[in-house]
Simulated scan of single mutants.
Amino acid sequence: MTRTFYQYLMTERDADMKDPITIFANSAYRDTSFPKQSKDYHEISHYLEMYGSYLETMTIFDEAWERYLATKK
């Protein structure tokens, strides 16, 4: 069974690191409305465009998505 994007993103959490993807992961963890069960790029992207005020740029999501896809290979 393939893990969801959220499950992958939670592996990037770290209280001490301050890189953009770690900050994204920490913020998504606190976002109770994040689409945790989704594996769909467009669904998550749309959600973040509408409600992801904690992302400085969608490029951070795109980079995290590429890392997520790399873990599925």
Rank of each mutant, 00 (worst) to 15 (best):
T2N: 12
T2Y: 05
T4V: 09
F5T: 09
Y6N: 05
Q7W: 02
L9V: 00
L9R: 00
L9A: 05
E12C: 14
R13T: 14
A15F: 09
D16F: 15
K18W: 11
P20V: 02
I21M: 02
I21C: 00
T22I: 12
T22W: 12
T22P: 08
A25F: 05
N26T: 08
A28C: 10
R30M: 09
R30W: 06
R30C: 14
R30F: 07
D31Y: 02
F34H: 02
P35D: 10
K36Q: 10
K36D: 11
Q37G: 12
S38H: 08
K39G: 12
K39L: 12
K39P: 00
D40T: 03
D40S: 06
Y41M: 06
H42W: 07
H42I: 11
E43F: 01
I44W: 01
I44R: 01
S45W: 07
S45F: 08
H46D: 15
Y47H: 13
L48H: 07
L48E: 05
E49V: 01
E49K: 15
M50Q: 15
Y51D: 10
G52Q: 02
G52M: 12
G52F: 10
G52C: 00
S53F: 08
Y54D: 11
Y54H: 01
L55R: 03
T57Q: 14
T59A: 15
I60N: 02
I60A: 04
F61C: 06
D62F: 02
D62R: 07
D62K: 11
D62G: 04
A64D: 03
A64E: 05
E66T: 06
E66I: 05
R67G: 02
Y68G: 06
L69A: 01
A70F: 05
A70V: 01
